[in-house]
Design a protein around this nucleic acid. Sequence first.
DNA 1: AATTACAAAGTGGTCTGACCACTAATAATT
DNA 2: AATTATTAGTGGTCAGACCACTTTGTAATT
Lengths: 214, 214
Amino acid sequence: MEQTNNPKKMFLEIVKQLRQIITDENVTVGGKLPSERELAERLQVGRSTVREALRSLELLGLIETRRGEGTFLSDYRKHRLVELLSTFILQESKSKEDVHITRAALERDAIYTICMSKRLYTLHIWDAFKEKLIVEDMLREDIIREIIIISNNRLGLKIWFLLKQFAGEPYKENMKLEEKSLWIQLLIAMQNGEEQQALSLYNEWLLLINRGDV
Amino acid sequence: MEQTNNPKKMFLEIVKQLRQIITDENVTVGGKLPSERELAERLQVGRSTVREALRSLELLGLIETRRGEGTFLSDYRKHRLVELLSTFILQESKSKEDVHITRAALERDAIYTICMSKRLYTLHIWDAFKEKLIVEDMLREDIIREIIIISNNRLGLKIWFLLKQFAGEPYKENMKLEEKSLWIQLLIAMQNGEEQQALSLYNEWLLLINRGDV
DNA sequence: AATTACAAAGTGGTCTGACCACTAATAATT
DNA sequence: AATTATTAGTGGTCAGACCACTTTGTAATT
């Protein structure tokens, strides 16, 4: 190894080798990685160097460490991409308006997608929703979340979650009667696949709740 | 501070504080951060802890370190999330699909928003676009970007930009004649505020380009 | 024999101090 | 004045030492 003259980043090399170990030893999600001390010995580097690599992966949400237990491979679907983007990259445009607009875009497209998909097997869900809306005082954000989930856009859901946090959650209140009736109409429109009507109702609802907001 | 009983991740706290320092001291792109030793003293932690945080940020490409010189804030547009996710996360086809779906959602909603907004003062833009499309061989991604910009969703634009990088850029090719005619129809639909027609054309275009893909 | 209590080993979390390699500013020499 | 040598400062790495915690195995108790 000639990294004396070579300003290569050792810890990046370790990251690479860690990936190798994970695949070689067939470490599955939730599985345990070798301990820091063992890794240090196997890779012939100091423990601190190993830690620097591990901490990087932890920040990304790719591994999980539990003191006294060990280091575990976490579900890569739980990666922290969205959070990192929000804290480091998207911070300058976190004006409330931007967030609202983008969130509305995701919500609107979920509605549109569902209307267009015409997957009849989910139709019974709408009846259940309508029931819940009337009887149980369903929360706004619950119903919207369900809709995005149904639209099958998981990444969009993640982003939506994040934006929701940014925006200070005006969705958590219970719905007034006027809203409820609007949503029931909206659900019916979605049930029938009438995308134009559904989107129009959604926009109407946005106007309604924004009147009380800001 | 009582982190003795607290299993909080110290290095994550350091990451946070680093961001604070960057904003407080107005460290600009390319600017120098305090040295590791100084940071350790200021934040009252060991140097190794500071390094774990710094290495995490370096893996993300958010900072740059030069031995003998110091640590510098790098352009956040050069972040490494793209490579990292592609190597660690996006190998699963499901994830790639997620990216495509979300990107399409943003694009679609931009089209919808423009159609509904009926801001006539942008109408001349469409003519210019049509002209460009025919004469200059405009790139797909250029035109879509412009559309999202016009839709006035700045945050959405940022997210779109990132997703575009993730997806391996199938948009950069020049358009075939069939695509061009589709887009011209789409532009006309937008010009006239016919949202249903525009979205339908967009979906048609998605099908078209996905046929050649994968 | 079964249960409980305790000790030991293993693990991540952190700190300290020590080198090394390198850079840039400073001092000394020419 | 120009060049060279010294020095201080920086990141890179390592080794060893604790700490807090979890698991495990063993010994004591019942």
